[in-house]
Each structure stands twice: as C-alpha cells, then as structure tokens.
Design a protein around this nucleic acid. Structure first.
Lengths: 259, 259
DNA sequence: CGGTAATTTGAGCCGTATCAACTTTAGTGG
DNA sequence: CCACTAAAGTTGATACGGCTCAAATTACCG
C-alpha cells in the first residue's frame, strides 16, 4: 500500500520550495505527500529567495502589507494573533513543507514568529500570483495545500471545543506525533519545539493547567517526560482514551469490562 | 408547493454556481465579493445539477466517498463532526455563495445537514477537477475561496479559545451579523436560522449556558430577543466590549452595592 | 557559576456543566 | 380554529475543574 514508507527522506532532493500535504483524492494513509514536481519547484525557485530567522525572531505582523508568502524549509514557526489585552492566541504551528503568509485584502491576517531557528523561501506574493495564473497544475497543488490547512484549522477548533484539560493536551500531543510520523521522522518520542506558554496559547488553557495535565498523564503512566522538550508515550491506548473522552463524569477508565 | 414562486432576493443574476469570499488583495472593507465571472459560472453550470434538501435533511456524512462538492444557492447548512459518544461538534455554518464538501483522500471530512430548506448546485468532484486543470483563472478563484474558509476556520478556533460564555456568544452574534452585512442583507436584526443546540455545539458550550448568556445580554440592555430566531442589537458598543474581554476578573461594571 | 526565565506545584475561588423542573413554541389532527 | 403533545428553550441549584495568585524548583545563557 504505502511503498514510500521506507527510504524516502523527509526533505526531497529538490532545489526549490517544497509543499507537503495529504492528498484530496486517493488513500495514502494520511501521509503528507510532496505536492510539487521537480519542475514546479524549480520554477518557484526562480522567483524565491532564501531567508533565515533566529529563534524567537518576528517574521511578519498581523496587519502588515502582505508582500510575501513563505515556504518553510527548516525549523518551526508559530502563527498567532495578539489581542488588545496583549494576550496571545496561537493559530497554528508550522513545519517544513508548510506555507505561511495568510492574507486578506492585502494584509497579513496573523503574525508569525520563529519558534526555532528557521530557514525558508520567501516568495513575493505578486510573482506567485503571476506564476499561478500561468500554471494550472501548480495552482491545483496550492489548492490542495490550502485545503489541507483548512482541515488542520478545523481540527484545531475541534481540539479547542473539548472541555477537559487532559483531553486537549492529549489531542495536541497526538497532533504533534502525527506531524512527525507523516514526515517520516522518528516517532519513538514526541518533540515539543515550543514553550509551555505556546502550548497553552494553542490549546486555550493556562500554562499551569498544561503543566498539570502533563504531570497527571505522567503519573498515570501514560507518558514519560524525558525532559522539557521530549516526551515518550508509554500507553498509547490510554492516551487515545483520554483524547476521546468528553466530560469529567464520563471517566470509567477501565475498559477491561466483562460484559 | 415550491417556495420560489416569488422573486429571488440577494442572489446574483448568474445562471450557475456563485462563489463569494473576501478578496486576497485590494481593500474592499471586508465585503464578500462574487468571485466567478458570468462565463466561469456558466461553464460550471454545464457540469452541475440543482439539488434541494428539506430542513434537517442529511446532505452527506463524514467518511462517505466524496463524489461531489456543493455550492449553496439558498438556505443554511451546518457542517459537523459526530463524536463516538454521539456528541456533535459543528465545524461551520454555511450560507449562499459557500462551498461544502471538504474532502481528504477521497472521503468527506465532515458531515453536512440542511438547517433550513436548501437549494444547491451539486458539482461532481471529478468534473470539477478536470475543469480546474484547464482553467487557471477559475482555479485562482477557488483558491481565494478556500483561503477565505481557512480564515473563517481560524476565527472559529479563536472564538473557541475564549473562556467567558458571554464573550463566545457575542463573537458568534458578530459573526452572524457580519455574514448578513457582507451579503448586503438587512442588518437591523440578526437572524439565527439554527437551534440553540447548534449554537452550543458551535461555540463549545452547553445549551443552557448559551441560553443564559443571551438572557444576560438582554437584561444588560445589550440586545433584545425579539423571538427565538431574531435578535436586535441595542448597544453595539457594549457587545463589542463583551466580545473583547478575556477573563472573568476583568469584569468591572458590577455596580458595587447591596441587594 | 551566577542570574533569570521557564516550568512546576500549591491553595482558593469562580464560572460553567450537569441534573432537573418548568415554560414556550411548533406540529398534528379533530 | 383549537386542543393536545412533543420538542425547544429557559431558569434554578449544585458540584467540580481550571483560572488566578503565589511560591518553589529547574533549566538555560552568558
């Protein structure tokens, strides 16, 4: 079924931008595929430039004139909105193969900041639009990517609609794990490139609640906090159960029933 | 018999599918523009068919083979996911000019159901893909629409990340009002085509909390519940203030006193 | 190897989910 | 047109989870 499970490196040997997403059609088991052909990548490379951002560096701000779209090559980016009371809501974490620079009426909708050191292609929006107008196939690949991001945003909303803290954290961990798997990386342990406060701003909880949830999951033997950035899942079944539960009262916990 | 015996309201004069979204470039003050040209609409009409759904009727289910995309002409649709414990999470409410039928690997990601009687174009996915491959401009319009939906999904997640019940309801009402305004409809009062339970499943609260929030907003003189489906905003400034507030404690306004 | 930020842990309070009773609306048939 | 019934919505009482404030602990950077 999935012939590409082995060998295929997470970063394709292309010379230019690379966009990854799950397909619209055809079952691929949820694997993120490389959407661009060598040729498309090369053509985009012509209008792109490589840019680097230090950890914590601002990439753009909400409301800025949206001059460029970025294609992440290496590192992790957070897309977020700042509220009047300076609180932060994180829209998404973005990884290699992702596009950032969502715009509306010529300005960026969100802000973006490097969570780790980041390498990316900067693609001028105007040049990209011109290319798209000429290349229906490339355009279709971009549609596939945006649709992919739409599904992700819906999953995020779904996560946020959950009420139990542990459930949200469990869903978040599963999300990160799926990222790693879909990119063919080691899935022995989950890597958390972001700070606890970033997790909190993504799952819509306080930092303390995130910390407590992780601690609780650890003392329940469901996962091991190897260090602040690395987590190992010990009881995947248990994690799934917590990710699936809806309300506090539902907690029967023991699915080893006999009737 | 058929309710369309009288004049059609805000439906554009086109003979085929119509897709509305805010633009990627150029400031239009947040107005949803008709994206398709007459010609594009006509070409899509060739591969489409009109379908109708009764109020409450299922349009498709998550996991079904995704054969078609739908373009709403009239009525309101809810897109939702059902959880194992049969609880419902609503992904989006969709209106005329919207597309539904989000798919991944050949199957629908969500379920869809008519909230009111619905008229829509059914566009076979395969035919649509073929058309897109041949028509870069049409494709660009579709990208614009999907990007629009992505922003909406992010706003939904933002709404869900809020903690105060009244804040979520206020944001929801603003969202509905913006829909009406962007579609050029009467904005004197907000029309709620959906049930309280649908609102609850969209904002991630209990039905009771939705009801209480609305009652509270009314007794604060911020809005008037004309009937179950129609709300008038009396104090827009006050509604904005509630939509913007973050945490319980931030709430001054409590006339100090005895009671 | 300090100094500081990040994270964890603790205590108390508040808001919302839950359970439950009640009121209103809509739908149906006489 | 009205009576009847079920569904939708509102209102009340209570419990508990997570937020806030506060302090202790750990990791990180120069």
């Amino acid at each position: 079924m999935n012939a590409q499970t082995h060998i295929l490196p997470s970063v394709p040997p292309s010379r230019g931008p690379a966009i990854a997403a799950t397909a619209l059609w055809g079952a691929a088991g949820g694997v993120r595929m490389q959407l661009l052909t060598e040729e498309e990548s090369a053509r985009l490379a012509v209008i792109s430039s490589i840019v680097r951002f230090a950890k914590g560096e601002q990439i753009y701000r909400q409301g800025d004139a949206a001059a460029s779209v970025f294609n992440i090559v290496r590192g992790v980016v957070k897309s977020y909105r700042t509220l009047p009371d300076e609180h932060e809501h994180i829209t998404a974490f973005l990884f290699p193969g992702d596009l950032i620079g969502l715009m509306e009426e010529g300005t960026y909708v969100n802000s973006a900041r490097a969570v780790t050191p980041v390498t990316a292609y900067r693609i001028p929006a105007a040049a990209l639009e011109m290319r798209l107008q000429k290349d229906a196939e490339l355009e279709f690949h971009v549609i596939s990517k945006v649709v992919h991001d739409l599904r992700e945003a819906q999953r995020h909303a779904f996560l946020l609609s959950r009420h139990r803290a542990a459930t949200k954290v469990a869903l978040f961990l599963q999300m990160l794990e799926n990222y790693q798997i879909s990119r063919g990386e080691n899935a022995e342990e989950i890597y958390l490139p972001m700070r606890r406060s970033d997790i909190a701003d993504y799952v819509g909880m306080s930092i303390e609640a995130v910390s407590r949830s992780l601690s609780a999951l650890e003392s329940d033997g469901i996962l091991a906090l190897k260090n602040r950035r690395h987590i190992e899942i010990l009881d995947r079944r248990g994690l799934e159960a917590i990710a699936a539960q809806r309300e506090p009262r539902d907690m029967p916990a023991r699915h080893a029933g006999q009737d």
